[in-house]
Simulated assay, not measured.
Amino acid sequence: MIELLSLVAVARVFEVQKGFRSAKPYGSGHIHDTYCVTFDDGDREDRIILQCINTAIFKNPVAVMENIERVTNHLRSRLGRGADIGRRVLQLISTHDGAGWHVDAEGRYWRAYQFIEQARTFDSVNSPKQAFEAAKAFGEFQRLLADLPPPRLHESIPDFHNTAKRFSAFERAVAADESARDEAARDEIAFARARETLAMVLLGAGLPERVTHNDTKLNNVLLDDESGEGLCVIDLDTVMPGLAAYDFGDMVRTMTCPEAEDERDLSQVAVDFELFDAVLRGYLGGAGSFLTAPERGSLIAGAKVIVFEQGIRFLADFLAGDTYYKVNRPEQNLDRCRTQFKLLSSIEQQEDDMTGLLRALA
C-alpha cells in the first residue's frame, strides 16, 4: 500500500483540480495498484483513476503507454465528437509537462484516467444481456481499431497467445516436476497431451493480424448503470497485435460459465449455450463486416484454443510450485486447470451446435 502523502504528490503531477479530498484503493484487479482520487474545487467534485503500473509483469511500461495513447486517440477519432464520447473511451490525463505518464523518484510508473461516472463493471455474468453487451463492446473495439495506421503496436507481453510455446512450457514443467506434483495431476497431463494439436490450430491458419485486447473478461467493460449498455472497454495494457479469435475465445472462456474459476464441483462447470449465443451475437454485432470469412470460421476454434491454453498455463504453474498465479490453498491452480479442461470438454460436446449457430449468423 502506497502512503497517502505519496499518492497526493503523484496525483498533483497530473492536470487535476487542486482541492484534494480523498484517495482509496479501487477495483478488483490484481496487477496494478489502483486508486480512486477525489478532488473538490468548491464548485464541483472530480474523480480520477490513478494507477501505479506493475513493471514486474509489464517490463516495458513505456511501450504499454505508447500503445494506450495511440489506441485511445484512434478510438476517439473514429467515434467523433458525440456528447457521450467521454464515457466511451478511456481518457488519459496529461502531466503538467504534457506527458501521458509519470515516473516518480522511486522509478515507479504512474498514469491517470478520467473517472467514468454512472457505469460499473461486474466480475461474473448475471444475464445473457450482460454477456451480449460486453461482447458487443469488444467486437466494436476490434472494428474501430481495424484501420489503426502503422506502425505496428508494441507487443506488451511477447508471445502472449503463442499456444505452441505455452505447450512447450507445460511439457518442461512436467519433465522438471520441481514440486513432485506430477502424480496428483496425472489425468490432467494426459488430457492436455491428447489435445496437443490444438496448440497450432490458430497459429497455422494464415489469419490476418488485428489489434486485439487480449483480456476480454466481463469486468473489462464498463456497463451503463441505467441501460446496461456496454459503454467502454478498459484495462488496455495487453492491447497489441493478435488474432480476432483470441479475443472471442477469451469471451467464451470467461462469460459463458457463471461458476468460479477454481470451482471444485466440476458437475457445475459447463458452457451455458444461452450465454454462448449471447456472446456470439453480441460480438458479431459489434464487429460488423470487418471480419473475413476465415476469421468468422475460426471463432469456435478460438474458444477451444484459449480455454486449452489457459488450462495448460494453470497446470504448468501447479507443477512448478505456484510461481506465477497467486494461490490461497495448495491445489488451487490444479482446480483452476480442471475447470478449464471441463469447459473445453463442454465446448467439444456442443461444438456442432455452436458451429451451426455461427453459420446461421454469418
Rank of each mutant, 00 (worst) to 15 (best):
Q118K: 13
R87A: 13
A11H: 02
V305C: 04
L153S: 10
M251I: 13
L299D: 06
E261I: 01
R329A: 11
S28N: 08
E3I: 09
R210V: 01
S345T: 13
D43E: 13
A176K: 12
I31W: 03
T254P: 02
R88V: 02
R264P: 11
Q118P: 00
G285S: 11
N219C: 07
E263A: 14
G86N: 12
Q51H: 04
R120L: 01
A105I: 10
A164E: 11
A23G: 02
I347D: 00
S179H: 00
P61L: 11
L79T: 05
L144M: 04
T238V: 03
F20S: 03
L7Y: 10
A134W: 01
S289L: 09
V37K: 08
R87I: 04
D46C: 07
G356I: 08
S124Q: 12
A173L: 06
E69P: 00
A205W: 01
Q118V: 01
A320R: 15
D352N: 12
E348L: 15
D187Y: 05
A205M: 00
K129I: 03
P150W: 14
D224Y: 05
D247C: 06
D265T: 06
A360N: 13
F122Y: 13
H213S: 08
S298T: 00
E209G: 12
A360D: 14
L148N: 02
V89S: 07
R281Q: 13
G321K: 05
L291D: 12
R296P: 06
T55G: 02
R44P: 02
G19V: 11
G204M: 02
T339E: 01
E66D: 14
E351F: 08
P25E: 04
D352G: 14
A164N: 00
V10Q: 02
E106F: 07
S6F: 03
L343T: 08
G249Q: 05
R359G: 14
V221R: 00
T339K: 10
A164Y: 03
T256I: 09
F167L: 13
D225T: 12
G321F: 06
A245C: 10
E66Q: 14
R70A: 07
L4Q: 15
S227T: 15
A360C: 05
S345Y: 05
D247S: 02
K136L: 08
V103S: 12
L361H: 00
A320T: 08
D277W: 08
M251P: 10
D123G: 11
F248A: 09
A63E: 15
